[in-house]
């Protein structure tokens, strides 16, 4: 079966100015060719697929490149290299500035982190949901009203509330508006960027269940970006763990969190607070991640923070290799690795 989304060898690098505006640095900045300039490797050679109807979680610390990856997938910025095949078409060939008018634009939609801040404060809930429908489906009049009402109903948002502005809605209602505006254009892939991070647990539960129900009802696929591993475990079929621009582990969510193979995943899982208080393992990451500016391509990105850190780790970058049970891991020493 061809996957809905097939991302292959995707990279995004940003040029950076050398620090300090000395005359020497300035001269270097203006004279060196673009490829000689220092670069932040935000996303580095990332490949993965999302099947139809699948929920894939993307986890990692802030600064690991999650947002850059998402922005490349939703075609808000152009990747430096690699391909993004959606259905059968390579979307990476469409420049980001043209994608807003592209015919496939409505097929990938995004739900942003804090609906209170991502919805235009001068739009009513109706306008917020209607805006993408007008632009992408070119509906107006009664058809527009019907589409908006339907999306609102599907998200459990009472139609009486559609005339309200964001500040007149509760956090949970705003989250519903954010979801309704994304599903109103009937996307096939929904990218959710920490959709419940700003919500209380009691509201979070309701929104998570809503998302699970919408997925089955509308047959969408989800890419669920979060740093709350407990939520990812409940909602996702598969999970990708990112560290400094690279996917270091991938596999079925349950398996990855119960038996992490990569030392970074292990530390990440150990840091998640547990209700029962057990598992407060003294497994802590020391130090800061290495700089993402021009990292040595032969050194494992986790080297220096990794408790293992052998010689091979700084002479050879471990590739993402297949492990048992549909799992993948990028570590020379991962148990179950090839």
């Amino acid at each position: 079966m061809t996957p809905l989304l097939d991302v292959a060898e995707l990279s995004k690098r940003f040029p950076v100015a050398a620090s300090g505006s000395t005359l020497k640095n300035l001269r270097r900045r203006f004279t060196r060719a673009a490829d000689e300039q220092s670069q932040v490797h935000a996303v580095d050679d990332v490949s993965f697929t999302i099947a139809k109807g699948e929920t894939v979680g993307l986890v990692g610390e802030s600064g690991c490149g999650k947002s850059t990856l998402v922005r490349a997938l939703t075609r808000l910025l152009d990747p430096t290299a690699g391909s993004i095949r959606f259905s059968t078409r390579d979307l990476s060939l469409v420049p980001a500035r043209d994608f807003a008018k592209d015919r496939d634009r409505g097929r990938i939609q995004m739900v942003f982190q804090d609906a209170g801040e991502s919805i235009n404060p001068r739009f009513t809930a109706f306008d917020a949901i209607a805006d993408p429908v007008r632009r992408l489906k070119h509906l107006s009049g009664l058809a527009l009203v019907e589409t908006v009402d339907k999306a609102a109903r599907q998200c459990g948002l009472p139609t009486e509330l559609l005339g309200r502005y964001p500040h007149q809605l509760s956090g949970g209602q705003r989250a519903r508006v954010g979801i309704a505006r994304a599903i109103a254009v009937e996307p096939e892939l929904l990218v959710l960027d920490e959709p419940t991070a700003a919500l209380d647990v009691s509201v979070q539960v309701v929104i998570l269940k809503l998302l699970a129900r919408l997925k089955t009802e509308l047959g969408m696929s989800y890419l669920f970006v979060s740093h709350d591993l407990s939520v990812v475990r409940l909602l996702c079929d598969r999970v990708l763990v990112m560290y400094l621009g690279k996917i270091v582990e991938a596999g079925p969510a349950r398996a990855v969190f119960d038996y992490p193979l990569h030392p970074y995943t292990r530390a990440l899982v150990a840091a998640v607070p547990r209700l029962d208080g057990i598992g407060l393992a003294k497994l802590r990451l020391s130090g800061e991640p290495m700089s993402p500016i021009d990292p040595d391509p032969n050194v494992c990105r986790f080297y220096g923070r990794c408790p293992r850190g052998a010689d091979i780790c700084r002479t050879q970058m471990p590739p993402l290799r297949r492990a048992a049970e549909g799992r993948e891991v990028a570590c020379h020493f991962a148990a179950g690795g090839a």
Binding site: V201, V205, L208, K209, D228, S230, L234, R274, L275
Partner: peptide, 14 residues
């Protein structure tokens, strides 16, 4: 309602 307490999304109570 705490995600950590539940084995599945269905078991999570609002």
């Amino acid at each position: 309602a705490t995600p950590d307490s539940a084995a599945s999304l269905d078991a999570l109570a609002s």
